[in-house]
Nucleic acid binder design. Structure first.
Lengths: 332, 332
DNA sequence: CTGTTAGCGCGTTCAT
DNA sequence: ATGAACGCGCTAACAG
């Protein structure tokens, strides 16, 4: 790599002081039009670009934002990452990507690393951390936005999973289903907990006391996990006529279990998924599911973070996205 | 945020000079065991972490690597990103994620931004840049590893797309198919070009002169693009008995087109995809496809970059991954 | 409006 | 084995 051109080179070439170059760089006014143009010409000619690290050391702002997700290979988080990157780029920030690999210790480690790297702020996605530790780590950063988790004194962007589950329950009730089962996700998953709550409350509100035996937890939130959980639940409860699944992969596994057990979908059992991944419209029967605009969530989180950064009011906002029911053949 | 503890605080607390703390930090020897332990104790007690930016300014190393992908929301690149992040974390590096959004100008801009941020190296995935511009930008960085593209004097990790396509052709020939069509991807896509080459050469090698009329380009590399391209090709060439698709989404679209046109798969037309995405095994019939371990590609690229960084020999390596044929019902 | 003087927090000479 | 002085490239606070 060739030698970098520094602010001193520009200053010398333009016959001004380094400070004047700095002013031209940052449009702080306090500079005459003539010199401004002259300096800009030299900057352009020398193809000078200020060093972000030097600037960072001087200003304590790095123009960098940390994004922690459980797993970027999971389409759910990849979409959020895409939205966040778009919004960051638009605002002149760069994104430091971190996979927490579903591990709490790793997550703390990443938070510390980001602190060490002096990121301006952090977007933390679906944190698995206990409240106390989370609060402690959040305090170490200038600004944090949580996605799908809430915390006192911290901004957050959430999907209304409880409401989403309730909407699905109501849809199935509207189809005349009365024995509605739930295939839940991990116990430590915030969204799974919320969906369980929405499901339960919606059943109570409808006068259908929820039956704990109608709920089954998946070992893993994927096709296999859904298949096994559905088999277990369908065998234990042959009277089941509706099944709400933690996500579309789980629902796909449930479809397979139904087929094997000779339960027709949707005639015998109406099945619903969540997330509306690509797969949802391609399996047979196509899945009724909940759609949330994940890219928009990423964009919103990043914009909110930048707002927090600029206001520095310490105020915290909460934005809630409502998932949208997508009706397909599995629960028409 | 509380005030950061700096190296000076540690030095004062430990009753030594800042330099001694620095030595303790970097294990450069030249320090007695006693003071080393004492300083380490203070570091631990004060929970001191050296500032990456200050260190970066002094050393010109940031411990940061830039990763440019066309689109992180595309599972293909998300998997590579996941692998790269794992390998980076393991080696103590952080990843600066950038989406080029399939735009050459944006890609150049990102390369410049990464330079400004003084990343130690760059992994550039499926660059769309013309050779000359690419070479120019690559020179500005200390180390660059290209994925799915090659360039003189630059390390690269590639999937052998030509060979992969050839393997599929041979498989279909082995099934007795003689009129084998190709649904190609974008003209500017390196991998699509390679697959066209492999397809053509394999047919020539088998004595089946390739027929240009058997090749159809997709407007977009997704289900819709595949559907329309397949409809056009199947209508124009009713004698087609094999169809090789740019990727699994295209193949899925082709399956739909076959169904609509009353062509049975695989009896009338054997269909093959590429990438082995989750969907491939779930559509009906399940897709014969090519699998490449994308996460491994990401890991390999990052390790290669770090090697280049440490050797600084200027030597460049090339690693080629062979895709693996996965045989399913669409071309058994 | 412009230039001068000081740091930002660390590593790297050199002395000691 | 330890410490003092300097510089990385830039911005902030002051002077003129």
């Amino acid at each position: 790599m060739s030698f970098r051109v520094s602010i001193a080179d520009v200053a010398r070439e333009a016959g001004v002081s380094r400070q004047t170059v700095s002013r031209a760089l940052n449009n702080k006014g306090e500079i005459s039009d003539a010199t401004l143009r002259r300096v800009q010409e030299v900057i352009h000619r020398l193809d000078y670009r200020p060093s972000s690290i030097a600037r960072g050391l001087a200003t304590h702002h790095t123009g960098t934002i940390g994004l922690i997700v459980p797993d970027i290979a999971n389409p759910f988080f990849a979409d959020i990452g895409r939205g966040a990157d778009d919004a960051a780029h638009e605002a002149g920030y760069s994104l430091l990507l971190c996979n927490a690999v579903e591990d709490a210790a790793r997550e703390v480690d990443l938070l510390r690393t980001l602190e060490q790297r002096a990121v301006d702020g952090v977007v933390l996605c679906s944190s698995r951390l206990p409240e106390k530790i989370l609060a402690e780590q959040v305090k170490r950063h200038d600004a944090v936005v949580l996605i799908n988790r809430s915390l006192d004194g911290c901004s957050s962007v959430c999907v209304d999973d409880a409401r989403g589950a309730a909407v699905v329950v109501q849809h199935l009730l509207g189809l005349g289903r009365r024995r509605i089962g739930l295939l839940a996700g991990s116990e430590v998953s915030h969204s799974s907990g919320e969906r369980v709550r929405g499901y339960t409350e919606a059943l109570i509100a409808a006068g259908e006391g929820p039956d704990p035996a109608l709920m089954q937890r998946c070992d893993s939130p994927d096709i296999d996990g859904g298949y096994h959980a559905a088999r277990a639940l369908l065998s234990a409860r042959p009277d089941l006529d509706g099944l709400i699944c933690y996500n579309d992969l789980v629902a796909t596994g449930a479809l397979r279990a139904c087929a094997e057990l000779g339960r027709r979908v949707p005639d015998d059992v109406a099945v619903a998924g969540a997330d509306d991944i690509l797969l949802a419209s391609l399996v047979t029967p196509a899945l009724t599911t909940l759609r949330s605009n994940r890219q928009a969530i990423g964009v919103a989180a990043l914009r909110m973070l930048i707002d927090d950064l600029q206001c520095a009011s310490g105020a915290c906002n909460t934005l809630v996205f409502q998932p949208e029911l997508v009706v397909r053949a599995s629960a028409p």
